[in-house]
């Protein structure tokens, strides 16, 4: 396990905090002194999973480095909603360069720090994170990401995966799941929505680079997410965390259901939550109550075409097969 869940309290470690827990057992987000690395006033949509995921992850990294963090950010929703002139939501040193070069920018920062720290010109505790959406990570930024991985540069790269190009109006990315409707995979024709047999799961590709740390997480399991960031910051070299962040706008879900949808993604097995070190799987966050994929799909308008007058049982079965494969492959029922 990536963290020791606490049992037999009202809520164990499922809630953000718990007044019954010892202070050292509490989450970063439970603290009234948390960093709020991304501040109020940002322009993310109501219920934005990415805004939430970014604060969870960056605050955890800030906690791990005691505030000695520099962040590089890819173009995308997160960048646009957080830094429209004349206001920024970031309370940490932050740079946005381009859509597809964030991993490389972070490499440059890490290289600069290494030299400066060796010369004694900068605090030796300063570390680097890079972050971007799935488009900026799995598509346009993938070359730079892979380069950063293979060189094992001392960067934690965090991908906030909402399964598409949401900033430009919900187009397909290589992280868009099969059958999902996007503006470029419309729910029309004989095979509505995104095609099966396409796309890529970057955490697995990251593992193939045999970098020190690869993990997935969702905004629904805060403690797991924080533990993963914390573990990542214990290690040096290239690290990758892929966080599922539901997008109410792009997925067609109620703004209040962001966390619930992420939870369903994990509980159905469609999104495997695990970690790996040096290319080998180390942990799996066990499914608590296995649910059929339908429970995850049905509340999302991007899958509405699967639930017309007659549910499209064939497509649903194919998606269920994908979930079942994840469950087998990553040991999601037993957990690790």
């Amino acid at each position: 396990m990536s963290f020791q869940p606490i049992k037999f309290y009202q809520t164990g470690t499922f809630t953000v905090g718990n007044r019954l827990l010892a202070p050292e057992e509490r989450s970063v987000q439970a603290s009234d002194k948390r960093y709020n690395s991304i501040n109020s006033g940002h322009r993310a949509c109501q219920g934005c999973g990415e805004a939430l995921g970014a604060r969870y992850a960056i605050d955890a990294a800030m906690e791990a480095t005691q505030g000695q963090l520099i962040c590089a950010n890819a173009t995308g929703c997160l960048e646009v909603f957080s830094t429209p002139y004349p206001e920024t939501s970031w309370q940490i040193p932050w740079v946005h360069s381009l859509f597809g070069n964030t991993a490389a920018v972070a490499t440059g920062i890490a290289a600069a720090l290494k030299v400066k720290q060796k010369k004694g010109e900068r605090n030796p505790a300063i570390r680097v994170v890079a972050q971007g959406g799935d488009g900026g990570t799995t598509d346009i930024g993938f070359g730079c990401l892979s380069g950063m991985f293979e060189r094992n540069d001392d960067v934690l790269y965090i991908c906030y995966d909402n399964g598409g190009y949401m900033n430009t109006g919900v187009q397909r990315s290589s992280a868009t799941p099969p059958a999902a409707r996007t503006a470029t995979t419309m729910a029309v024709g004989s095979e509505p929505g995104n095609a099966f047999g396409q796309g890529k799961f970057v955490p697995a590709i990251a593992m193939a680079h045999e970098i020190p740390y690869v993990a997935t997480a969702t905004v629904a399991d805060l403690r797991d997410l924080e533990a993963k960031v914390s573990r990542a910051m214990e290690l040096r070299g290239a690290r990758y965390i892929h966080i599922l962040v539901p997008c109410p706008l792009g997925w067609g879900t109620a703004s209040s259901e962001t966390i619930k949808i992420a939870r369903l993604a994990k509980e159905t097995g469609l999104f495997p939550v695990f970690s790996a070190e040096y290319g080998e799987q180390k942990s799996a966050l066990a499914i608590r109550q296995k649910l059929p994929v339908e429970d995850y799909l049905r509340p999302q308008k991007r899958y509405a075409h699967l639930f017309g007058k007659q549910p499209d049982v064939q497509v649903i079965a194919k998606l269920q097969a994908l979930a079942d494969r994840n469950i087998r492959k990553y040991n999601l029922l037993e957990g690790l």
Binding site: L98, A104, T107, G108, A111, A112, L113, K116, G147
Partner: peptide, 28 residues
């Protein structure tokens, strides 16, 4: 001495690494 030499994977990365390094205060 005191120089990081990065074998990048493309010119796009080369300039991007230089951007990051320069923004972090290094002569790039």
């Amino acid at each position: 001495g005191d120089c990081e030499y990065i074998n990048v994977e493309s010119e796009f990365a080369a300039m991007s690494v230089a951007i990051g390094a320069s923004a972090a205060g290094a002569r790039s």
